[in-house]
């Protein structure tokens, strides 16, 4: 096995383990830590694909900003262990079949995919990938990009309004 392949299996395994731990651990901080593990493992997978910019941004935005806020809020509220409840019958009866269906579907499409992964493992086009990405983002898809930022701004203002209502 080549080195990138070994690294792929190590970090893909870490990502899966982290995701499972995130669901099964009961202390909120532990779940958050497991989620950070998933984010970092995913960043390494991006790096293996040659997408350095995406990898760095993945860590900065998700592990470095979003999850820090999660951890911060959990610390601030001093949330204790979560309690297991059996209230949601819907999840019990619909969730399992849906989950199994999704798994079967994913496995099916993965098996159908061409061996070698098609476009994803092809060497990147010569040139600066960061430049290509920014060209796409700020030229071809400028309108969706700006709309998204307005969406985030609306969410931010909404949160402020909700928080200010009491006082």
């Amino acid at each position: 096995m080549t080195l990138p392949l070994v690294l792929f299996f190590v970090f893909a395994g870490l990502a899966v383990i982290g995701a499972l731990l995130m669901i099964f651990l009961r202390e909120p901080i532990h779940s958050a830590l497991a989620l950070i593990l998933v984010m970092v493992a995913l960043a390494v997978l991006y790096l293996l694909l040659g997408a350095e910019f995406i990898a760095a941004v993945q860590i900065i935005v998700y592990a470095g900003a979003v999850m820090v806020l999660f951890v911060f809020v959990i610390m601030l509220l001093n949330a204790g262990e979560e309690e297991r409840t059996n209230i949601s019958k819907l999840a019990h009866y619909v969730g399992w079949p849906l989950g199994i269906f999704l798994t079967v579907e994913l496995v099916y499409w993965m098996l159908r995919a061409p061996v070698g992964g098609g476009a994803s493992t092809a060497p990147l086009a010569p040139g600066d990938p960061t430049r290509d990405l920014s060209m796409l983002l700020f030229k071809s898809y400028l309108f969706p990009f700006e709309i998204t930022s307005i969406l985030i701004l609306i969410a931010l203002i909404g949160a402020l309004v909700l928080a200010k209502r009491d006082s």
């Binding site: 901080i29 960043a43 350095e52 910019f53 760095a56 470095g64 820090v68 951890v71 610390m75």
Partner: peptide, 26 residues
């Protein structure tokens, strides 16, 4: 010698918060 060295440095510093935050919490 990473082509995006500066970004990766910021990536590493941005996770550096956890050491301090988790120490305080745990």
């Amino acid at each position: 010698n990473v082509s995006l060295g500066l970004l990766f440095l910021f990536a590493i510093t941005s996770i550096g918060v956890y050491g301090v935050a988790l120490a305080g919490w745990s």
